[in-house]
Amino acid sequence: MTVDHRQGHLESVRSALSVIIYPVQYLVDVPAKMTGWATESLVTHQLLLEKNERMQEEQLLLNSRLQKFNVLEAENQRLRKLLESSFKLSERVIIAELLAVDLQPFRHTIVINKGIREGVFDGQPIVDANGVMGQIIHVGPFSSTVLLITDPTHALPVQIDRNGLRAIAVGTGQSRSLQLEHLPNNADIQKGDLIVSSGLGGRFPAGYPVGTISEIVLDPAEPFAKVTVVPSAKLEQSREVLLVWPNDYARPHSEEDSFAVNL
């Protein structure tokens, strides 16, 4: 136990055992998948049409935003070149699906259906459509375990989007709140400020939204302010998550079966 906790030499043992466990997890996931499949195939024509229409509108909206974003990105790169600072290029992303499997209570961990075969590695960041979700802690051949940012043992280097103030967001064990540690009482923070990942730890890519400040308690008796953040990722609702490969990591081996997007 000590060896596993302190050094992680047993990661290969865990990975091998996870092959035996994967059928169990898969079987448990089947009913959830079936219900999803049934609801999808039993929707009415009308509903589908409506959904289609809504999605087309949304895509139009997003496309128009993307045009602006492309121009801005090009401009940003040009300006950075002028300043002669290095600019991080786009990251590679694939989509993974959650297995409907409950893990130990009092920890915030989930299982996804991508593993070593898809090139997943230990410590890889996970995001969803709205923000940072967590990072990989165990990788097996077919599945891997994700530690969510709300777990009490998880900490994440962040900065406040408005003024670039750096902080550390620590999980609280509650699924809808994070805590910003060691911010002095006179720090320039406001309720509603957007928190983004700062990329300082080298693990999470910079600039992904983490959450918004929901509450600031200033107690003169305490050296630091008590700042609560609501995570922007839908940690309890997402069924699909995105695995991010930061630039300096090797690309995955099998590209044909994974849906790849370049952001």
């Binding site: 136990m1 596993d4 906790h5 047993l10 043992v13 865990r14 055992l17 996870s18 035996i20 466990i21 169990v24 997890q25 893990l103 130990q104 920890r107 961990t109 299982v111 802690i137 165990h138 375990t145």
Partner: peptide, 9 residues
């Protein structure tokens, strides 16, 4: 332990 992602052992 592997199923729940706890410490091995």
């Amino acid at each position: 332990d592997v199923l729940q992602g706890t410490l091995l052992g």
